[in-house]
């Protein structure tokens, strides 16, 4: 009887340990999403997303914020502030200069957009974090084609 209780206790302790390891590695320490491998929720022209945000920011925020977008457009410029590489598709001139869609590239894709000549057509994929009244902001971006 005593042996059975000890065995059951050991099994429970083992299961608890496994559960603890699972929670630590797969929940508490789970890795960030790799957006370069994520499936796009929307595939469309970048200018269409920009227009939706510009005309109805609330509606567009509900539709696109936190979603993976694959957007096609013409590269206007590549900016490199600090350690970032940002591909810019511009569509308007506003109070804060050019307005459009800004893609912060994943480090491994930075070279790919730097090498592209302005005016070229690109499809970039990433996480849409919202619209700041001048630009649609895309993070963790990769080059699709």
């Amino acid at each position: 009887m005593k042996r059975k209780i000890l065995t059951a206790g050991a099994v429970l302790a083992g299961l608890g340990l496994i559960a603890g390891i699972f929670v630590y590695f797969f929940l508490f320490n789970k890795p960030h999403t790799d957006y370069s491998k994520a499936e796009a929720d929307f595939e469309m022209k970048a200018v269409a997303v920009f227009e939706e945000f510009r005309t109805n920011p609330e509606l567009a925020s509900g539709k696109y914020n936190g979603k993976v977008l694959s957007l096609t457009g013409e590269l206007t410029a590549v900016e490199q502030p600090d350690s970032l590489t940002i591909a810019v598709f511009s569509y308007e001139e506003g109070m804060f200069g050019s307005e459009g869609v800004r893609f912060t590239m994943l480090p491994e894709y930075a070279g790919s957009v730097i090498a592209v000549a302005p005016g070229s057509t690109l499809t970039l994929k990433g996480l849409c974090t919202g619209y700041n009244e001048t630009d649609v902001i895309m993070e963790h971006c990769s080059v699709v084609k």
Binding site: L27, F28, N29, K30, H32, G66, T129, G130, E133
Partner: peptide
């Protein structure tokens, strides 16, 4: 200044 809340990056995905 204007900040998009979803643009904050955390070390841990769960915290974010």
């Amino acid at each position: 200044f204007k900040v998009l809340m979803k643009s904050f990056q955390f070390e841990k995905a769960l915290m974010q």
